[in-house]
């Protein structure tokens, strides 16, 4: 589904990603872990098409298509979804209006008519239940006055509504208390299928107790320095990052 080959990217003169290789297949859950400043958020931003970052080399293909050739909205139409670490506020626009616009734009790109309001509302109610979201939420303005936990839940709600093929969760666990974390993780698990894939970006192992990954990658200094199964996350939790990063420092010195 997603193939990243020797990806190099950065901001202005500052190269952050120094050659990333990653392959994600349908049905898989990948976790990307690593210390602060290793390039985790940059990787998610580059996949989503944030123009603040410049791609200097390498390639990203998504279902065989060159992702780097596409605008951010086209990537979204193709099924790439990013759950933001810091979701922004859009004052005056209700959650329901925003999601309706989002779904209509996607359908328009696919040559489809907008979803009838009745069907849309029905779907919204189902997904709200899935994420234990209370009534009255749909008419609130996008992220305006939301708590940290509400913002993250709103991200996952949009993901549930948009049914992406590839979901990237950027530090979705940060700012969540344990109950909220459980609800969000539970939602993500329920949305998993054989046709879609999830990339979980996290600093801590905590989230991975709830969303169990098939693969764990350690990102450090712009490179994936170690990959393994779910047990790697536990090992990192126990021993910290030092034992892998030291080795890498030696190799790339």
């Amino acid at each position: 589904m997603l193939k990243i080959n020797d990806l190099k990217a950065g901001i202005e003169e500052n190269q952050i990603l120094k050659g990333i290789n990653l392959e994600v297949k349908a049905g898989e859950v990948h976790a990307i872990m690593g210390p602060n400043g290793s390039g985790k958020s940059t990787l998610s931003a580059v996949i989503a098409g944030n123009e603040d970052y410049e791609v200097e080399g390498g390639s990203i293909t998504f279902n065989g298509e060159d992702l780097l050739e596409l605008d951010p909205e086209e990537r979204a139409h193709n099924g790439v979804f990013l759950s933001f670490q810091y979701p922004v506020e859009i004052p005056g626009i209700s959650v329901s209006n925003f999601i309706k616009t989002s779904i209509s734009e996607k359908r328009k790109a696919q040559g489809l008519e907008p979803l009838p309001t009745k069907d849309l509302l029905k779907m919204m109610r189902e997904k709200m239940e899935l994420l234990s979201i209370k009534q009255g939420y749909l008419s609130r303005n996008m992220n305006e006055g939301f708590s940290g936990g509400e913002k993250k839940r709103n991200e996952i709600f949009q993901m549930a509504m948009l049914e992406p093929r590839l979901a990237i969760l950027d530090e979705t666990d940060s700012g969540l208390d344990i109950d909220a974390l459980r609800i969000v993780a539970n939602g993500v698990n329920k949305l998993k299928s054989a046709d879609n894939a999830t990339v979980v970006i996290t600093h801590y192992q905590r989230l991975l107790d709830y969303i169990v990954p098939d693969f764990v990658h350690v990102l450090y200094n712009g490179r994936i320095i170690k990959s393994g199964g779910a047990e790697l996350a536990h090992e990192l939790e126990e021993k910290g990052y030092d034992w892998v990063t030291k080795e890498a420092d030696k190799q790339w010195a």
Partner: peptide, 13 residues
């Protein structure tokens, strides 16, 4: 720009 990118990412040009 962050607001616009957020919308872009949700498929809104």
């Amino acid at each position: 720009e962050d607001q616009i990118f957020y919308c872009n990412q949700r498929g809104i040009g």
